[in-house]
Write a protein that binds this DNA or RNA. Structure first.
Lengths: 243, 243
DNA sequence: CGGGCCCTTGAGTGTCCTCAAGTTATGTGG
DNA sequence: CCACATAACTTGAGGACACTCAAGGGCCCG
């Protein structure tokens, strides 16, 4: 495995992300301390530890989760390419959730101490980091509203819609299908539903032609209809910065 | 009402907040564009609007909430003194939730356009802004875990504990009580529970001597016991930056 | 004194949970 | 090549936690 230059980073090409200036690419080239490839099941960041690294996901998917004292697990978000990992640990000193690889993943690695240099010398990139944190906060706010106010069917519909939109934005759609290599248990833990109920809800959505998630692939025949079921707007995702 | 200088800002004295350097205080003095006092019930920031301002809460309390297309309301967080409001609108262009004053409030007002100047000239303060965003993200993550994995009693206990800790950190405890001027409906909407169920749960906690919230005041006889009920650590809050 | 707003309490219902069993696909070792 | 084990997905049955509906009480204010 060889190192990819930021100059030719595949992320740059994806229309979802705002491109960097020449100067920024040069800085990031330095900022990047290496690459990391991990197998499915690997814990990338651990709850309670103070990770010395920050990552940007280049390829593969994972899960952000948090386990309570009583052992129950909450999935906070699904980790997709372009996601920025470890900022919490960097600014606050400690991760409060874990990140686990679900598929094989390739990560761009940054050194935590260099983040301060970024803030001193690259205000525009610092602003981007804040943008990313605010966007994450915004998404978690939507999740809170979902768990608090939507019933089971609406939750599942909402989650599938969001994932479909995100994956499509990344250009991963092929023949009307996007890859979604998670387990039903993961979705259940993300939505605060039992596995059994999640399974039955998914079956219903499938037979109602609202959304079909099977064999690790998701297809949505009618986005508008699914969005209505999810009590949400089917708005496309905005362009966003990345590192 | 007269303007308070950042030099003598009451926030500076609260042990919960990390103090600013002299240079930072001078910058903030300029950054601050004024003060705002609002009556209970006032909408400070509106969902879907692009507010031109950012605020720091000096006094009073409020609510951050979000309403779904079907009309149901989710309270995202309780707004307390020291909180930083409007960052999402500033970096992302639009608020995705509203903020409403519950008591009379006094706010420190910043101009949105000046945020960029802050990032260019005050990297340490920019870092603080990111810290705040990350902390907010962290808290919302805990909330997601609460709504997803805790039952009714645990949720109420968790919320009361968090609020008690925050208010105590602000030095608002008097004779074993902290002020909590919200309605039961607000707590219900924050926890995804019905008003009726929230009410019954609060009664139970009261008669079990776990937590007593009545007449707008909250007291917690045994923090440790409440924390156990809430399936959480009764850890004190860390020091945090503010603007 | 009437009307709101908030808190309180009781009764009946339903969504979602747990328990349990069975199917399919994949992999491992004899 | 087949017995066995494991992991994920399915499906059915019964129960519980939390919901809605409904009504009443305390308080403040016009």
């Amino acid at each position: 495995m060889h190192r990819i230059s930021c100059q030719t980073c595949p992320m740059q090409k994806c229309a979802l992300f705002t491109p960097h200036s020449e100067e920024q690419k040069e800085f990031l080239e330095d900022f990047k301390s290496g690459e990391l490839s991990v197998e499915p099941g690997t814990q990338i960041l651990l709850e309670g530890s103070s990770a010395p690294q920050i990552y940007t996901v280049l390829e593969g998917m994972g899960l952000r989760d948090k386990t309570l004292e009583n052992g129950r697990r909450q999935v906070l978000n699904f980790v997709l390419p372009g996601d920025f990992l470890g900022l919490q640990a960097s600014v606050m000193g400690e991760m409060m959730h874990s990140i686990e690889a679900v598929t094989e993943m390739r990560l761009c690695v940054f050194r935590r101490e260099d983040l301060w240099t970024l803030f001193r010398t690259q205000p525009a990139l610092a602003y981007d980091v804040t943008w990313i944190a605010a966007a994450e906060e915004h998404f978690l706010g939507e999740t809170v509203a979902t768990l608090g106010q939507r019933d089971g069917t609406e939750r599942v519909a909402w989650a599938l819609l969001k994932l479909y939109q995100r994956l499509r934005g990344l250009g991963l759609e092929k023949a009307g299908q996007v890859p979604l290599p998670f387990r039903q248990q993961d979705l259940a833990d993300a939505l605060g539903l039992s596995l059994v109920h999640t399974n039955k809800t998914l079956s219903r959505l499938r037979s109602d032609d609202m959304a079909d998630w099977s064999d690790g692939k998701l297809s949505v025949p009618d986005i508008q209809a699914l969005a209505e079921l999810a009590v949400t707007d089917p708005e496309a995702l905005p362009r966003r910065p990345f590192l």
